[in-house]
């Protein structure tokens, strides 16, 4: 028997993958979205989360980024 899922394959570095798993565990997007944990650098996720995931990552990244100019002002 073969199981078939539709979704999105995400390729990233191991650190980002852990972060994504963390988002999944804490249900940051409202629900679980990781379908299959493939290997160190690959995840298979639900197709609906594409946009919200992208925005969330972007937001998070801006939060932790050290902005030299704004910190001087």
């Amino acid at each position: 028997m073969v199981n078939v899922f539709k979704g999105i394959l995400i390729k990233c570095d191991p650190v980002m993958k852990q972060f994504l798993l963390h988002l999944d565990d804490t249900m940051k997007l409202g629900s679980k979205f990781v379908l299959v944990d493939l290997d160190e650098c690959h995840l298979f996720v639900q197709p609906e989360v594409y946009n919200s995931l992208k925005n969330l990552i972007d937001e998070q990244y801006e939060k932790v980024y050290y902005n030299q100019k704004s910190s001087l002002e």
């Binding site: 078939v4 899922f5 979704g7 394959l9 990552i57």
Partner: peptide
């Protein structure tokens, strides 16, 4: 940092 590809998993 993330590369998205729509696909089907078996």
């Amino acid at each position: 940092r993330l590369e998205f590809t729509e696909g089907v998993l078996y």
